[in-house]
Design a protein around this nucleic acid. Structure first.
Lengths: 219, 219
DNA sequence: GCAAATTAATGATTTATTCAAG
DNA sequence: CTTGAATAAATCATTAATTTGC
């Protein structure tokens, strides 16, 4: 019964706790370097590879979003009856904003705890797009200054499955037998400030909306 | 406060609804006069320009066509399997007809995309060593599939620690020295022990709890 | 209590979209 | 319009929970 018999990673409670903590603290799509760090630290608690971390965040984000979507969907469904399409910047916007939460650490209510510094790539000139909750205004003019192309030019921007894969290929000496014996003492995981890996989906996930929210209405 | 920093139009839900309604009602390539009219009407719900309307119809038409093409492709394939090619003459006619609805010329490299080729539901076993199907059955360990392998190789020179170090070095681009002092200094995320004061829950952190509480099993 | 059977979670893959550069 | 990069959505597949009959 070597761990090799298991075909997929089984997170230990500690690993899970830490991952969730990181997620709560705002990490959504860790880049290669972050994954490396996380993996390294989590390997202390059991066998784990970069891809596991990568997948975990992908899945967790997706499923949290899904959950929220359903929840909001129900809520909106009720109110939708009365909706008469006369300028009521409306529920779908609310929904939209809330959904964005999943990709935008900056909007995390955890900011106040300042576990890390959320980085918002606002145009230098611009300001205060941060101003949240202007529900009644047309806020869909908000910024997405960050371009992926830009990042792509530096090493930094490259991450994703293939990179994680390479990292694993390179740096995956079979760790500890893991999971069995005594639980190691608790540690502190040092994280550097989040670098902006995304921040898109700001205002124009139109297609998503199509899925989610709008029934067809006539004017 | 100028939201004018955004470079792209973000359709409001209302605008989107109306545009879709118009599309459904048959409009595909509105002329200048129509665009003018639509723009005026939609501007009631948010900032919008004629070009936005123009582009929207162009894109929407293209994408609907694409969607339909794929869908029909799948349907045809399924039908083919189900009925074991007992003729269903109407299918191809239907497809032909519908595709032309969009003024299509059914060529283009889309053929390689082909909804017609995927072998998804075929029995896996097979002798098929030659099965080219295995997409990127990327082994996270060693294999580095094609295109990105290049990038990889160039960088793979530095393995192990060096690689990680480099990633680290590169990884934290101080976002903006920028103006505001309001941003907290770089911090370390303290994971353990969790103090009583932290961990404000997200609005929807339901699952976290669930996860944790479910982890009573022995790992 | 205990496994076989069934169902729910969730890790891992594949497919479709999105954005923006060419 | 096409395409590369990134990833979100959808799906597949395996593990764990839970139920069930004994």
């Amino acid at each position: 019964m070597s761990p090799a018999t298991s075909s997929r990673w089984c997170p230990t409670p500690e690993q899970l706790m830490i991952l969730e903590e990181l997620y709560r603290s705002g990490i959504r799509t860790p880049n290669a370097s972050q994954i490396q760090h996380i993996t390294t630290h989590l390997s202390f608690y059991g066998r784990i590879e970069g891809k596991n971390v990568f997948y975990w965040f992908q899945n967790h984000k997706a499923r949290e979003r899904q959950k929220l979507r359903r929840k909001l969907g129900k809520q909106l469904q009720q109110q939708h009856q009365l909706y008469h399409h006369h300028h009521q910047p409306n529920q779908s916007q609310l929904k939209h904003h809330l959904l964005h939460y999943f990709d935008s650490r900056a909007s995390s209510p955890l900011q106040q705890f300042s576990c890390f510094s959320p980085v918002r790539f606002l145009p230098q000139g611009g300001q205060s797009e941060n101003a949240p909750q202007q529900m009644m205004n047309h806020t869909w003019k908000v910024n997405i200054p960050e371009s992926r192309a830009e990042m792509g030019k530096s090493l930094m921007g490259m991450y994703g499955r293939d990179w994680i894969m390479m990292m694993d290929a390179v740096a995956a000496p079979p760790p500890s037998p893991s999971c069995c014996a005594s639980r190691p003492p608790l540690k502190t995981l040092q994280l550097f400030p989040i670098t902006a890996t995304n921040l898109k989906e700001e205002c124009n996930s139109d297609s998503s909306n199509k899925h989610l929210s709008l029934q067809h209405h006539h004017q």
